[in-house]
């Protein structure tokens, strides 16, 4: 009889990725309902020290394999190690993050373990002792509830959605032998090229502050950059600003640029032509600052400020900084 809610924890350069705590939180909730344990699998190199940290997020036991082969993620060794452990322990549920790594790993695991998976889930619950996952279909217009008929019941979880849980208990750390010597490597990481701008990529950003034609010129973007710095946001631009040569093409949000869905999108001096809306209307909260009360963006915004952005934005930045200094 399969038992236990398992998850694969993701780390990069010796630090957990936030989404792993979210997955742990979801696993904890399921395990409590089932009255089972939460076990995490952690793979990497020089990561033994961080394994215990997972306990704080609801994990009872962490299986760690520390090997130079796990230093960089490769599908072959990661899937082999995880699959071996899963086969040995036969858990009832296995969760992963629907991150780039999680999507790659989970699809390979499904094949090796010959089981089913619900991908990119937004909600999980237990019905009659079995996992029922909610996932968006038809470009997010509907939700489907699905269950998996084979074990382990696998699911990958959409980032930024599941709450983390706090836990006093420390996790038990167990080393395991991944037995990967026999794994035939099909790929090898040669080099990792990192974006050197230091800013979070637009498509991954939590908060975006964008400027459009209303910025009047490239020299005025410092107004927006200051607000972005105060918020810890990434700066975007409308097509008009990119066309005018004020911002690089890589900053463009819209139909012919990047499609983004941050938690907060601040549109400054952007009228909201459909080509721009197509790229950002799925943002959770939209704030628009525009002096034209008829600008279409105000119809899409959750909060709209009808005024000159050069008056409003510096004021907002100032107040934000004050709040942050006071630590509120």
């Amino acid at each position: 009889m399969a038992k236990g809610v398992w998850l694969v924890a993701e780390q990069r350069d010796g630090a957990f990725r936030k989404v792993s705590f979210e997955v742990a939180g979801a696993a904890r909730k399921l395990a409590d309902e089932l009255g089972e344990e939460v076990c995490a699998i952690l793979l990497g190199h020089d990561i033994e020290g961080i394994a215990g940290e997972l306990g704080k997020y609801g994990v009872d036991r962490v299986y760690v394999a520390d090997d130079v082969a796990f230093e960089q993620y490769t599908t072959d060794v990661y899937s082999a190690a995880v699959a071996k452990l899963i086969k040995e322990n036969n858990p009832s549920i296995l969760l992963l993050a629907a991150s780039v790594q999680g999507k790659d790993l989970s699809s390979r695991l499904v094949g090796i373990l010959a089981t089913g998976m619900a991908s990119d889930c937004v909600d999980l619950k237990i019905v009659d002792g079995s996992l029922v996952a909610t996932r968006p279909v038809f470009a997010g217009k509907c939700y489907a509830e699905v269950t998996i008929l084979t074990t382990p019941q696998m699911a990958s979880l959409r980032p930024n959605l599941f709450p983390t849980v706090e836990n006093e208990k420390a996790a038990e750390v167990v080393k395991f032998d991944p037995a990967i010597d026999a794994v035939e490597l099909k790929t090898k990481v040669l080099e990792i090229q990192k974006d050197t701008s230091g800013r979070v990529d637009l498509t991954e950003a939590d908060i975006i502050v964008s400027g459009g034609r209303g910025m009047k010129g490239p020299e005025n973007y410092n107004v927006i950059e200051e607000l972005a710095d105060a918020l810890g946001a990434t700066v975007g631009a409308s097509r008009a600003a990119v066309d005018a040569g004020w911002r690089p093409q890589s900053d463009q949000v819209g139909q012919t640029g990047k499609i983004v869905s941050p938690n907060l999108y601040v549109a400054c001096g952007i009228s909201g032509a459909i080509q721009h809306l197509a790229g950002m209307s799925s943002s959770k909260c939209i704030v628009a600052i525009n002096k034209d009360p008829d600008a279409p963006i105000l119809g899409k915004a959750d909060y709209g400020i009808v005024d000159d952005l050069f008056k409003v934005v510096p004021e907002v930045t100032k107040e934000l900084k004050k709040l942050l200094e006071r630590g509120e």
């Binding site: 038809f138 470009a139 217009k141 139909q255 012919t256 499609i259 809306l277 197509a278 209307s281």
Partner: peptide
Amino acid sequence: QELQLTYRNMENNSNPWGIGAH
């Protein structure tokens, strides 16, 4: 790439911007 998105939007929502067909 822009055209790929347009086609996907046409497939999913039957319009080039991907706005909900409903």
